[in-house]
Each structure stands twice: as C-alpha cells, then as structure tokens.
Nucleic acid binder design. Structure first.
Lengths: 138, 138
DNA sequence: AACGTAATGAGAATTTTTCGCATCTTGAGT
DNA sequence: ACTCAAGATGCGAAAAATTCTCATTACGTT
C-alpha cells in the first residue's frame, strides 16, 4: 500500500502522490521523464497536472524514493528506487537502458573521493554505446 | 594559431569560431556553459551571438575539440579537450570541479560494456560530494 | 576581385522546468 | 464524523535552456 510508504518517507499521502508512486511501481518502463509519466498517466485515466508531476518527482527524489538521472537527452529521467544501487549503460541508437553493478568501480570511486579530500555523497556513471540489437541491424 | 586547428578539424576558420576557440584556450575556468562563454566573451569585447555560441560548441563537440558534460545543473557544460581523458568530481556546495583518471575504472568499464554486448562509444563518470574547503567551513 | 556556399546574428519559437496564486485535501484535534 | 490550518494541487504564466528561421555577411576557391 503506497500511502504507508509515503508516510514512512515523511510525505502526506495525497491522491496525486499515491497515484504517481503506484504508477511508477506498476510501470514496466523503469526510466521515464516527467513528461513521460504525465502522458502515460493521462492515458490510463489518472489525470495529474504536469507541474505536480515535477513537484512530486522532485520530492520523491529528496526523500530517496526515486533517483534522477541526467543522461544525454536534455531532460531529467526518473527511476524508482528498488534498493540496490546500480549504474547504467545506454544505447545511443535506440535508447535502451541496461543496468549493472560493479563492486570494483564502486570501491575505486570511494577511494578517489577520499584521496581528493571529498566527502562523497553520490555518483553517476553512465556508459554509452551501441547495444547488441542495433549492432546487428547495421 | 587557432585557425589551423579549426581547419585541421574540418571546420571553416570563421571569426566567431576562432574567437571562441581562442577564448576557451585562454580561459582559466575549464568548465563553462554556453551562457558562461557568451557573457565572458561579451565582457572581453568579443561579441558573438548566443545562438552561434551554441552552434559552434556543438560543432566543436562533434569534431572532438570539446566535451559536453551533463552534471546536475540542468544545462550543458563544455570543456576544451586537452588530450587526456579524465572524469570529474564535483562539489555540491561550491561547484568546484576536480578531475581524475583511474585506469582500473576505465578498464572495468570496457569489460562491462563488452560483457553486455555493447560497443562502447563513450562514458561519463561523475562523483558528487563536499570538497575539503566546504567541509571545513561547516 | 568575384562567386557560391556556408556561417552568423537577431529574434522568434520550442522545450523543459519552475512559479504564483486561488482552490481544494489531508490529517490532527474535537 | 466535523472543523480547521497547513500544506498540496491545478492551471496558466514565467523562466531557463536550446534550437530554428531567414535575411545578411564572411570564407576560401577560382
């Protein structure tokens, strides 16, 4: 039940917020822009204003429910947090997004931050390339 | 002489392009938005239209003269390519940007791309944190 | 020096995101 | 369940970032 999750995160369980969280949890697409969420919800009859989508996704981000990514498209992409951290590998042809986790890279990052005297709060690693399907079709 | 560099890169050596390249090479700040470049050049008397700045930086990117970054600010940041690839560590308090290169991470990335069947074309790694100066001031 | 092609400038247009404010909900207290 | 204040929403306007249009200008080749 989403309203409990929201309250646990310190947010009032308003109808738009419940709908958006519910939508994110039930969506098969994991990475979506605010506009994507807006349109998809419109289709399914859950009419939430675009400004609210932006506000809510930003709030979800600040309480850790979602992660915001800045890939190369000129707009933010949001992803529901499912616990395990991971990085991304994006196909520059079709936009397909795969996920991966690499302990070695994670460790090196922490070491590099420490070596530079930074207190690491976050990191973003994105590999760009051509996915298997797009390579074949060429 | 910048006009030679431009021609070598396959671009006509127009006045705005020479001025912009010259500005990037002489700037002490290495990471700038299109707006930053526009304003700084205005100050120094080199008046180039903002649309041209955008066009030229995009061209410079496609011929490899500059790299475009998508940090967390909601706009692109450009950096003159000086040969050696590197990644970034950004202070979320003051915006300071340090650079680093880690062979282990580079190697792992190539391996991960290969393992997923991707032909890697590029990658972006950015560590976010609080820099030494900002930690002290807190 | 002349010419054709490509580049520039200025502002309009797009796109993405935020803001302002009137109205409506939520959740705490009765 | 009912009331109320704080906070949330919706909508359109406003910002911010970037691209486009098109008339004018500059390259560089002849």
């Amino acid at each position: 039940m989403q309203s409990q999750d929201l309250k646990k995160a310190g947010l009032k369980a308003t109808l738009p917020r419940v709908k958006i969280l519910n939508f994110l949890e039930s969506s098969k697409v994991r990475h979506m822009s605010a506009e994507d969420v807006y349109k998809a919800m419109l289709e399914s009859g859950d009419d939430v204003g675009l400004a609210t989508i932006y506000r809510v996704l930003t709030q979800f981000e600040s309480v850790g429910l979602v992660t915001r990514h800045h890939f190369e498209e000129g707009h933010s992409v949001f992803e529901l947090n499912l616990g395990e951290h991971h990085d991304h590998i994006v196909c520059i042809k079709c936009g397909r997004i795969d996920e991966f986790y690499d302990a070695t890279i994670e460790k090196r990052q922490r070491e590099i931050a420490a070596k530079n005297g930074f207190e690491m709060t976050d990191h973003a690693l994105c590999i760009y390339g051509v996915c298997p399907d797009c390579r074949d079709q060429k």
